[in-house]
Amino acid sequence: MNEVDNSAWAVMLILILIILLPIGWIMVVSTPEPYHIVAGEPLREALENSGITVVSAVNSKLPLPGATGGKIYTISDENGNLITIQTQSFDSAGSRDAAIKLHNAQSVGKGKPIEDLVVVGNHLIFVRPGTSGTIKKILPELQKIKGR
C-alpha cells in the first residue's frame, strides 16, 4: 500500500512539475522590461525618423494610478488611412507594470487582447488592431530609443 502511495505521490509531483515548469519558467525567465525615464515623445520621434508624418496629437491621461499623461497620435498609414496610436507614461516601474497587467487582463475569449503593447522605458504604446504594420516599421527606431 505504501508503495502505491509513494508512486502516486511521485506521479503527482511529476504532474505538478510538468505543469508548473513551463508556466513558472516562462514567467520567471522572461526579462522584465527595464524601467527608465525616456525623455520627450518616443513614439513621435520614432515615427518622424521613419518618415511617417504625424497628422495630429492630442493630450490624454488614462484614469490609472501613476499615469502621468500621454498623447493620442493620428498618423496616415501607407494606404492613406488615418490611424491612431495612444501612448501613456508612468511615474514608476510599479505603476507601469500594473497598467501592463490590467491591459493583459482584457483578453478576448480565451485568446489575447486585440491591442498589443510596446514598452519603452516609462512609456507604454498601445498598438490597436490594424496598426501593427506601422509599428513594425518604426520598431527599429523604438529599439534605438529604448537603448538610450
Partner: peptide
C-alpha cells in the same frame, strides 16, 4: 512578478 509582458503573450498563445 514584475512586468512580464512577453511571458504573458507566450502563455496566452499556449
Amino acid at each position: 512578478l514584475p512586468s512580464i509582458n512577453q511571458a504573458y503573450w507566450i502563455l496566452s498563445a499556449m
